[in-house]
Design a binder for these strands. Structure first.
Lengths: 113, 113
DNA sequence: TAAATATATGATAATATATTCATATGAACG
DNA sequence: CGTTCATATGAATATATTATCATATATTTA
């Protein structure tokens, strides 16, 4: 089974998923994508691809002030796209799961065409 | 080569993509996801999964007024997520490519967990 | 070519969102 | 226990976005 088999498998899964969307799920979906639809948040996510980081590091990487970053971290956290744990005085953030990766990758693929 | 091979292949591709993101692409990415991040637009996209439709049909399906729908169709068109062609008096819209499918499917997967 | 139908568009008003500033909370440490 | 460092949060402002309303454009047909 090569790449074609892989794609077939995916398409079947995708069709199944999409055939069963209801209005509520569509709203949730819009909410999810809204989270990705802000450059500060997506830069934070991209930053976390390098590995877990604390708030100060993220602020430095993005060259943004701490409050703005914390506000967006909160939104990402509530949306369950990132996890956090405390280590002494600092909070350490990391990506929540592989879907974030995949969603972003699909987006990049679309853009790069 | 089974599902695992498929996943491996995807992960390698994804890592490659993400490793090469620059600031400009991140902004474009945010712009792209912003398009998906509106329930009217995502309902239009979901509607078009059933096949191509004209504006009147989309309005009926979404139970929304024509102007609101046309405004969002325009945004989707400019973003190249949908195509259009004229057929007499009516404009017929359709999904532009499979990435739309894939991006939405990834979103659904994330939500359904 | 005037009327009818389908769609697009500009302006506006209503709403949502992000950033900033000031301040609060929480942990470590003298 | 008061100070310092790291982060979170509330309020306010600035900006963006959406839907609506009115109207314009384009196509067909009488």
């Amino acid at each position: 089974m090569g790449e074609d088999g892989c794609r077939e498998q995916m398409n079947s899964a995708i069709n199944h998923l999409i055939a069963n969307i209801d209005e509520v799920e569509l709203s949730e979906l819009a909410e999810l994508f809204k989270i990705f639809g802000d450059s500060t948040r997506i830069r934070i996510l991209a930053d976390l691809f390098q590995g877990e980081k604390n708030v100060t590091e993220i602020c430095a990487d993005l060259e943004m002030n701490q409050s703005a970053v914390s506000h967006q971290l909160k939104i990402l956290k509530v949306s369950k796209l990132i996890n956090s744990r405390r280590e002494g005085k600092t909070m350490i953030y990391s990506l929540a799961d592989d879907h974030v990766k995949t969603i972003i990758a699909m987006g990049i693929e679309h853009i790069e065409e």
